[in-house]
Every structure is written in structure tokens, then in C-alpha cells.
């Protein structure tokens, strides 16, 4: 699980062009949206594509994303349970 969380942080930084951040700057329970990392709706779309491409998870209900993308912890838990690749 720790390896997955590290991978998610690295992918987040690369996919979302968080140029000034390193994986160490993102705590596992940091809020990704709003007051945390400050991600926005376009980032949410990027994350949905990332889940599909990297882990074979298709999110069809946007409401699901709100809980899944809350933090690195919630993302890692969801991916571990639902990944097909």
C-alpha cells in the first residue's frame, strides 16, 4: 500500500504539473481539493483518466469521485479494491 501511495503522489505531480512539489510535500491524509492541494475540476477529470489508464478503473458516477479523490489514503484504498491492472 505504501508503494501505491508513493506512486500516486508521483503521478499526481507529473499529470497535474505540480511543478514546485515533491512527493514528500503531500501527506497521505492531505485534502487534494479545496483547502488542501487546491486541485480543481479540470484536475478531477485528469484523475479520472489516470484511474482508467493506469489501474483499469472506470468511474461513471461523478459523485463517486468526491469521496475517492479526498486524499491519497482514500485513492489508494479505492484503487487497491477495484483495480483490474
Amino acid at each position: 500500500m505504501d508503494a501505491l501511495k508513493q506512486e500516486l503522489k508521483e503521478n499526481l505531480i507529473e499529470q497535474l504539473n505540480l511543478e514546485d512539489m515533491s512527493p514528500e510535500d503531500i501527506a497521505n491524509d492531505d485534502m487534494l481539493f479545496g483547502d488542501g492541494l487546491g486541485l480543481d475540476s479540470i484536475d478531477a477529470l485528469e484523475l479520472i483518466v489516470m484511474l482508467d489508464k493506469n489501474y483499469g478503473i472506470k468511474l461513471t458516477d461523478p459523485k463517486e469521485g468526491r469521496a475517492i479523490f479526498e486524499s491519497i489514503n482514500t485513492m489508494a484504498a479505492y484503487i487497491s479494491e477495484h483495480r483490474s491492472k
Binding site: Q15, I42, L45, E46, V49, D52, K53
Partner: peptide, 13 residues
């Protein structure tokens, strides 16, 4: 590269 799948919005926008 992705065979018309997995297209992210930012570069297109």
C-alpha cells in the same frame, strides 16, 4: 499512443 482512449482535457483546452 493511447489508441484514442484516455484523453486528458488540459492539452486539448
Amino acid at each position: 499512443d493511447n489508441d484514442e482512449q484516455y484523453l486528458t482535457p488540459t492539452p486539448f483546452i
